[in-house]
Simulated scan of single mutants.
Amino acid sequence: MSGGDTEDLRWSHAALNCRDIDATAEFYCRWFGFVRAAAFPVGDTKIVFLRKGDAYLELFQAAEGPADDAARGDGPVRAGTLRHIALRTDDIDRVLARMGPQAQVSLGPLCFDEFVPGWRSVWVKDPDGTVVEISQGYKDQTTGGEDDAQRH
């Protein structure tokens, strides 16, 4: 079974829901060699990107209380669960057009120019309901490498 031309899609990241973003970031940096690549404010919390080579982890604050089991357009929010997987491309619109009606969009496309100019994402669901983010234009905020990873 072929889905057509997919050469423009590359692995991007896995997104994790965390009880304590800083503790989770420290764990992956200390024990697995990730470095802090970016952090963005979101309301009263933040989103943190960790990088090891070409692999990224995106860390979200987990929901607390009755909403723990709720799913949003970008995936489930309960601590200890995978929120979504992500692929990157140079052209989200082309990917969505190629997918046609099989693109079950759950959120977006959204623009994140206030954080990184040109960064856009859309979230779609696979046949089992797993959320897949398709992103274009993301770039790391930091340039200092390991030293930046130790400063949470």
Rank of each mutant, 00 (worst) to 15 (best):
M1R: 09
G3L: 13
G4H: 03
G4P: 07
D5A: 07
E7D: 15
L9V: 02
S12Q: 13
H13I: 06
A15Y: 07
A15C: 06
N17H: 00
N17S: 08
R19G: 15
D20K: 07
D20Q: 04
I21P: 01
D22L: 08
A23N: 03
T24N: 00
F27K: 08
F27A: 12
W31M: 13
F32W: 03
F32E: 10
F34M: 08
F34V: 06
R36V: 11
R36P: 03
F40L: 07
P41C: 05
G43S: 11
G43A: 14
G43M: 05
G43F: 08
D44I: 00
D44S: 10
D44R: 13
K46F: 10
F49R: 06
L50A: 04
R51M: 09
R51H: 07
R51N: 00
K52A: 10
K52I: 09
G53E: 07
A55Y: 10
A55T: 11
Y56E: 00
E58I: 04
F60P: 04
F60V: 07
F60S: 08
A62M: 07
E64K: 09
E64H: 08
P66K: 02
A67C: 09
A67F: 07
D69P: 01
D69T: 08
A71E: 14
A71H: 15
G73N: 03
G73E: 07
D74W: 11
G75N: 00
G75C: 11
P76I: 10
P76D: 03
V77P: 03
R78H: 13
G80K: 03
G80H: 03
T81F: 02
L82N: 02
L82Y: 01
R83D: 05
R83I: 12
H84V: 02
I85Y: 05
I85M: 10
I85C: 06
A86Y: 04
R88A: 13
D90M: 12
I92D: 01
D93L: 11
V95P: 00
V95L: 04
L96I: 09
L96T: 05
R98L: 12
M99F: 12
P101H: 10
Q102K: 07
Q102S: 15
A103L: 02
A103W: 00
A103F: 00
Q104V: 14
V105M: 11
V105H: 06
S106C: 04
P109F: 15
P109I: 14
C111H: 14
F112A: 08
D113T: 04
D113H: 07
E114S: 14
V116I: 13
V116H: 02
V116P: 04
V116T: 11
W119K: 03
W119C: 04
S121I: 14
S121P: 02
S121N: 00
W123R: 00
K125M: 09
K125P: 03
K125C: 15
D126F: 04
V132G: 02
E133T: 11
S135T: 09
S135F: 01
S135M: 09
Q136S: 13
Y138L: 14
Y138G: 06
K139C: 11
K139A: 15
Q141A: 12
T142K: 06
T143P: 06
G145A: 08
E146L: 15
D148K: 14
R151M: 14
